[in-house]
């Protein structure tokens, strides 16, 4: 049963295309990471799923209904980001008690537990919080609401690394206890890949890939060694990333399935094989040019 089904989804802001013929399906009770560069359309996509924005064309179904301005979707989902606004008349502890009645599965003991753990001042208004503490507070709402669809848009903005680790653990623990569909968008893939089951990578509004984390880890391989020898193996194949080192050494990243049969041969030729981290791979896959930023400086 797909919680989110999306077919040929397109979104324009005036003349600017934010989402470009995107199709994918997200299964129930999975944690999916939405990964993409800045401005790739992550937030736009999430806001359409949450029902804040209206798709320009294409099909988008959440819980088998159109999400835009839908009460059913609103009742079963929560959208957490760092721009959430709460009135100044409410203190932080007021917010937790006032928001609770809206969500059927709200776990107030969990909310209060996390609230105490992070040692918030219950009398403080939300607008006075710093960037990191605001994100921390919002994440409490995201976890404690236990919505069947929990959307976390860059939930760790501004959090220090200790709080980020706590947040990931809290999210995972509560997910195991109370499974639900979670979409989490982040730039820090290396930090959250332990948490994720699937990864949806988008680039300039279009789908780049939608795989499980395991598959993504196995997707590509890095080869390093003498430039001539390396090139003889990868000639004519799609190179995801290429970097020149000194003394005629070359590092290329290539899809594993293109070269798997030749692994033994590569090793015998004195080349080194490396696994490619998911974080790096996503950067390579969404790069506009094949070289890195180093090329800008070496053009000199």
């Amino acid at each position: 049963m797909g919680v989110i089904q999306c077919e040929d989804l397109t979104k324009f802001y005036g003349k600017i295309k934010a989402i470009d013929h995107l199709s994918f399906k997200i299964e129930e009770n999975k944690i999916t990471g939405l990964i993409g560069r800045n401005g790739s359309g992550k937030t736009t996509l999430l806001k359409m799923i949450a029902g804040y924005l209206k798709p320009t064309s294409g099909e988008l179904n959440v819980f088998s209904g159109k999400p835009f301005n839908s009460l059913a979707v609103s009742a079963n989902s929560i959208f957490i980001d760092d721009t959430m606004t709460f009135p100044d008349s409410l203190t932080l502890s007021d917010i937790l008690t006032e928001v609770a009645p809206f969500y059927a599965n709200w776990n107030s003991s969990l909310a209060n537990g996390l609230f105490d753990y992070y040692s918030f001042n219950p009398q403080q208004p939300h607008s006075n919080l710093s960037k990191g503490t605001k994100s921390t507070f919002n994440s409490i709402l995201g976890i404690a609401s236990r919505c069947p669809l929990t959307i976390l848009d860059e939930p760790t903005t501004g959090m220090d690394s200790a709080v980020r680790k706590d947040f990931y653990r809290a999210l995972l623990k509560d997910y195991l206890e109370y499974p639900r569909t979670i979409i989490i968008s982040s730039h820090l893939l290396s930090e959250i890949e332990e948490l994720l089951e699937d990864i949806l990578l988008i680039n300039q509004g279009a789908k780049c890939l939608h795989l499980s984390v395991m598959e993504l880890k196995e997707l590509a391989v890095g080869i390093r060694g003498n430039a001539q020898v390396v090139l003889s193996f990868v000639e004519g194949k799609e190179i995801l990333y290429q970097e020149d080192f000194t003394k005629g050494s070359l590092y290329v990243v290539i899809r594993r399935n293109l070269i798997e049969q030749q692994f033994e041969l590569i090793k015998q030729s004195g080349l080194e094989l490396f696994p490619v981290s998911t974080d790096d791979l996503c950067i390579y896959l969404t790069a506009n040019t094949k070289g890195g930023i180093g090329d800008v400086f070496s053009r000199g």
Binding site: M1, L71, A72, A75
Partner: peptide, 21 residues
């Protein structure tokens, strides 16, 4: 899938109470 059923009036009344505070 545990789906929360909410009708428009309940949601409006809840929001009204929230706004009063």
């Amino acid at each position: 899938m545990s789906s929360a059923e909410v009708n428009l009036l309940t949601a409006s009344v809840k929001q009204y109470h929230y706004k009063l505070k």
